[in-house]
């Protein structure tokens, strides 16, 4: 009998610390698989954020650095510049990347740093207990927007793929979702492409995952995917925003 699906060797044996059904785990697995499939386990280094995935440095089975909140793209820049023979990625949540770390991500993208950035958008601050994120949807209730996000007061959610694809340098920018096996299969392709481009040192690659936070949304894991489909996908449209490796890339799926 042949094993056709198993834990990739690019993950350590440590169980994830995420809540049951949290899709951070799916994103981790896709990244780990792509690194394994690209044969990069011995040249790879990752940077973990501050957020629920703060312990990502324990889960990936190669060298990992833990960055201060929002600073992962700067840390990864230093790492890649110091060791150009290695391949570097960051893994960041929406608070980490789109609030406190906005300057770092925009400028790493603008410099076209030869990194992959994996951005998990769950529309909330998971780790600190469900506060409003820069990606929290209009009228969405969180512990710091108890009456719903008032866009007149605090503005609209930030669409990072759209924002970053206004820059000239980024090589590949795509938003994917993790809300069903079919969507995960699409996401796997995108992650694989980002890591392949990374291996070839082509430039800055950015994958946004539309994800969930069953715990802080207060919705069970299966239904939270439906909630994300109904509420997040209309605002955060999946699709490829930039792919310098392919001709005629269309914008988002309509």
């Amino acid at each position: 009998m042949e094993v056709i699906a198993r834990r990739p060797e690019t993950l350590t044996k440590t169980p994830f610390t995420y809540c049951p059904g949290c899709l951070h785990g799916v994103a981790h697995r896709l990244i780990a698989e792509a690194i394994e499939e690209n044969g990069l386990i011995n040249q790879m280094a990752g940077v973990a954020p501050v957020g629920c995935s703060v312990f990502a440095y324990k889960f990936f089975n190669f060298d990992m650095a833990e960055a201060a909140h929002g600073r992962a793209p700067a840390v990864a820049t230093g790492m890649k510049r110091a060791r150009p023979d290695m391949h570097v990625f960051t893994y960041q949540g929406d608070g980490d990347l789109a609030a406190i770390g906005t300057a770092e991500i925009v400028h790493a993208a603008n410099r076209g740093e030869k990194l992959s950035v994996f951005f998990v958008n769950n529309a909330i601050y998971g780790m600190t207990g469900g506060q409003m994120a820069p990606t929290t949807l209009p009228d969405m209730k969180t512990t710091t927007s108890p009456y719903g996000r008032n866009v007149e007061d605090i503005g609209y959610p930030i669409r990072m793929c759209e924002l970053l694809s206004t820059l000239v340098a980024p090589y590949y920018v795509e938003r994917v979702s993790l809300l069903s096996p079919a969507e995960i299969i699409k996401a796997k392709k995108a992650v694989g492409k980002a890591i392949q481009y990374n291996r070839e040192n082509r430039g800055f690659t950015f994958i946004e995952f539309v994800s969930t936070c069953p715990t802080n949304w207060g919705i069970d894991p299966v239904k939270s995917r439906d909630w994300a489909r109904d509420n997040m996908l209309p605002f955060f449209k999946v699709g490829c925003f930039r792919d310098k490796g392919e001709e005629n890339v269309q914008g988002v799926e309509k």
Binding site: M1, E2, V3, I4, A5, R6, R7, P8, L11, P15, F16, Y18, G21, C22, L23, H24, G25, V26, H28, R29, S180, P181, I184, I185, K188
Partner: peptide
């Protein structure tokens, strides 16, 4: 052996053989 279970498992707990 369609691997849908593996694909969706967030804790990478599943092995599929054929």
């Amino acid at each position: 052996a369609c691997k849908m279970c593996y694909m969706t498992c967030p804790d990478v707990a599943i092995k599929v053989e054929k």
